[in-house]
Write a protein that binds this DNA or RNA. Structure first.
Length: 132
DNA sequence: TCTCTGACTACAA
DNA sequence: ATTGTAGCCAGAG
């Protein structure tokens, strides 16, 4: 595991999400300077595994539109359980982002997130990326 | 070193 | 609304 700075940056942003608030994978990616890095964020959270998830409120990260990406899995059920325990209301299978979104409405700009962005925005290995 | 894959998502058709 | 594709990062084979 080499430069896991990206993962750490993701964890720091997620730890900054207040109780009862949620963010989407895409929003976390954007805070880190990646317009389309949502998938990478999901990869980072997945890497948490069971144990480390203790200090990272992974359950407050949802898919676009407030959907629970984990779906009908043990983890997905746990995520919904935790969110409801924090007072997050579900509308059907989604969370109302306008009501609970960390970055929605009149929420103050997350400073910790910007700090993480600075660290992550460092020189990017310019290895050739193909994939037609 | 290269390819494939995934707790994603914006965009085009 | 549904489908396909491209782009992101890092780990596995």
């Amino acid at each position: 595991m080499g430069d896991a700075q990206f993962f750490d940056a993701v964890y720091e942003v997620v730890r900054a999400v207040p109780r009862g608030r949620v963010v989407t994978y895409g929003q976390v990616a954007r805070l880190l300077g990646l317009t389309r890095g949502a998938r990478a964020v999901g990869w980072a959270l997945r890497a948490l595994g069971g144990g480390r998830s203790q200090r990272v409120p992974w359950h407050r990260v949802l898919g676009a539109g407030g959907r629970v990406s984990l779906g009908d899995t043990p983890a997905g059920h746990e995520q919904r359980r935790r969110l409801r325990a924090e007072g997050v209301r579900f509308v059907g299978l989604r969370v109302d982002l306008r009501a609970h979104g960390w970055l929605e409405g009149d929420a103050p700009p997350p400073a910790p997130a910007r700090a993480a962005q600075r660290r992550s925005g460092a020189p990017r290995t310019s290895r050739a990326r193909r994939r037609s």
